[in-house]
Design a protein around this nucleic acid. Structure first.
Length: 588
RNA sequence: GGGCGCUUAGCUCAGCUGGAUAGAGCGUCGGCCUCCGGAGCCGAAGGUCAGAGGUUCGAAUCCUCUAGCGCCCGCCA
């Protein structure tokens, strides 16, 4: 259900009617529980225009909304706050509808077609922690936006074209035999080693660098031999990455790397130039935003952001090669023209903020109407507050990171199983560890506000207590366990509810907020809101669990009602975790 | 030099369009297992929200300035 939207509209109408207004914003806010469930703060704002003291206005608002079915109590307090307590019977009915109606997540209006650009690893390099946030966040956003009704295309914009391939080809020629690396059997790790070596050599050895540039040029001209090598690089990298995507439960609708846009680049350059948006400078073709007047490009209302004025965008280097800016312009055009997308979202770290601001401004000047958002995020830091690396200073491979998470999960599951706290048998151990371990990594990442850097901490992640995914998975397993105990199918849970105990009402109030949270997470691109919601829900459930007997309830009606609460809790935990890409276990 | 961002409890972090006494987790201290799963529940201690001004009935939140830290800025992506 969409509790907040429903309440806001019900109370807003009531207020408008009471004060004879066209419409009114109730300024509805979730309240501190000691004051009620929600509070309406419109009285302070309305007081002036109505010409009455705020408290008096508040009293009238309280009076006006008291008759609503959804409202059990409404009282004015303090300077004019109106504290609202929800009606249990109304709430029970709404939650019952949620249970029958697949949670009734509110749909976004209008429905849009959205291309989400995420993960985007480079070819011939292992995926590392640097790709974790983009992959996990992007995947979560795909599912969240889909759940509110959008049509979403996930696109893996591979770094599969560029200068590294010249170096790789020459590196392979030079050290392939020595390092026992053959094209047919090379692993991504091998390629990464080759690249490092070649890159270092090129910095000191001009002749070597020149050879690399030569091979690159051949590749870019479409030389068959080099293309074959390049294809092999792509193939082996994708195969390795797919194993990781599989573990993460990530699937892309499209994998259109930079190379895909290659043949469109001259057209982009031509178009930008012919529209008078670019000019040559020091041999490079550049866009100088400070010289552009949007009015002359049919964009009278457009403001060029201040941050774009001081540096140009380079579309073509002195050597004639296009840059990633050009590719990104081609990409955004393709998303509008080919996919007919209404919106495109780039899940790429914050450091590229300026780049995307440039691309979006350029796209607008070129007359594109697609909406574009850069969903940036901060860095993952180690214990010492610097970007997370291995002791040797290398990036930590994503596969290795997941392995460690799973190993740590496994050790802890074994320990807890021995203590009798968990009931995971030996033959379920590996599968459970995989779900719990990878889930913990994802949750640890997604639970953070994406815009800030965060400190990666195994202890916190795998401690399995507090705000963590294992805690949520555990509460879910409890939900399922009651039904097994009761001998009732999980799918055919009772749906009618009656609340008598405080803990039931408290849990119901948490359950009522699920839809609003998903809607907000979708609107703001913030999966951490879902993490927060699920954690609040799980805590309320756990309190309910200690205070209310389910199977041992006093009456049959109470038992059925509590089973319904348990079922709805379980469904929200499962769906919420699914939205952020985390699996559950029926028992653990 | 220009631009973007950050600064909240001992530590790690939430805090939405401005609302009442700023919240969690971890850690610390103290309670709770005749009862459906204790990875649990209840409670306590712990804060000049970096600092100074301003707007407002009301500011952690909006504006300005200052300090500290981080990141970005023409031929890498």
């Amino acid at each position: 259900m969409d509790l907040e939207q429903t309440l806001a509209s019900l109370t807003g109408d009531a207020i408008a009617k009471a004060f004879d207004l066209e419409s009114a914003d109730p300024l509805l806010r979730a309240a501190d529980p000691k004051f009620g469930d929600y509070q309406i703060n419109a009285a302070m704002k309305l007081a002036r225009s109505v010409g009455k003291p705020p408290r008096e206005v508040g009293a009238e608002i309280a009076e006006a909304i008291r008759s609503l079915d959804a409202v059990a109590e409404a009282e004015v307090a303090g300077p004019g706050f109106v504290n609202v307590k929800l009606d249990n019977a109304w709430l029970a009915n709404e939650l019952s509808l949620d249970l029958k109606g697949d949670l009734r997540i509110p749909k976004a209006e209008p429905k849009e077609k959205i291309v989400i650009d995420y993960s985007s690893p480079n070819i011939a390099k292992q995926m590392h922690v640097g790709h974790l946030r983009s992959t996990v966040l992007g995947h979560a956003l795909v599912q969240i936006l889909r759940s509110v009704g959008h049509e979403v295309i996930g696109d893996n914009h591979l770094g599969d074209w560029g200068t590294q391939f010249g170096l790789l080809i020459v590196g392979l020629e030079t050290w392939g035999t020595e390092l026992n690396v053959e094209l047919e059997s090379a692993s991504v790790k091998d390629l990464e080693q080759l690249y490092k070596r070649a890159s270092a050599r090129a910095k000191q050895d001009e002749e070597f660098a020149e050879r690399a540039r030569g091979e690159l040029a051949k590749l870019q001209r479409g030389d068959e031999a080099n293309l074959a090598i390049w294809r092999r690089f792509v193939e082996v990298t994708l195969k390795t990455n797919n194993a990781i995507y599989e573990r993460l439960g990530v699937r892309f609708e499209e994998t259109l790397g930079e190379s895909f846009y290659n043949e469109m680049l001259p057209g982009v350059v031509e178009e930008v130039t012919s529209r008078g948006l670019a000019r040559e400078d020091q041999g490079a073709l550049c866009v100088f935003f400070k010289e552009i007047d949007p009015k002359e490009h049919g964009k009278p209302k457009m403001q060029i952001p201040k941050r774009l004025k001081n540096q140009p965008v380079i579309l073509r280097k002195r050597d004639g090669a296009a840059t990633y800016s050009t590719t990104d312009v081609a990409t955004i055009q393709h998303r509008e023209n080919h996919f007919k997308a209404d919106r495109t979202i780039y899940v790429v770290d914050d450091r590229q903020g300026l780049h995307f601001a440039q691309i979006f401004a350029l796209a607008e000047l070129l007359g594109l109407s697609i909406k574009a958002d850069h969903v940036g995020f901060g860095k993952i830091l180690g214990d010492d507050g610097t970007p997370l690396k291995t002791r040797g200073g290398d990036n930590i491979a994503l596969g290795a990171l997941l392995d460690e998470a799973v190993a740590r999960a496994k050790a802890l599951i074994e320990e807890k199983s021995n203590e009798g706290v968990l009931r995971i048998s030996a033959d379920e151990l590996d599968a459970a560890a995989e779900i719990i371990g990878t889930g913990a990594v994802k949750f640890g990442d997604l639970a953070q506000n994406r815009t800030t850097d965060y400190r990666f901490d195994w202890e916190k992640l795998i401690a399995f207590s507090g705000n963590s995914s294992p805690y949520l998975q555990y509460q879910y397993a409890r939900c399922r366990s009651v039904f097994r105990e009761a001998g009732i199918e999980w799918e055919s849970a009772p749906t009618e509810m009656v609340f008598t105990e405080a803990a039931e009402g408290d849990l119901a109030r948490e359950l009522a907020r699920f839809g609003d949270t998903v809607a907000r997470a979708a609107k703001r691109y913030e999966p951490h809101l879902i993490c927060e919601r699920l954690y609040e829900l799980a805590r309320a459930f756990s309190r309910f669990w200690t205070q209310c007997r389910v199977l041992g309830a006093e009456t049959e009606e109470a038992k059925m009602s509590r089973l319904a609460l348990v079922a709805l809790t379980g469904r929200q935990l499962e769906r919420g975790l699914e939205l952020i890409g985390i699996g559950v276990l029926e028992a653990m």
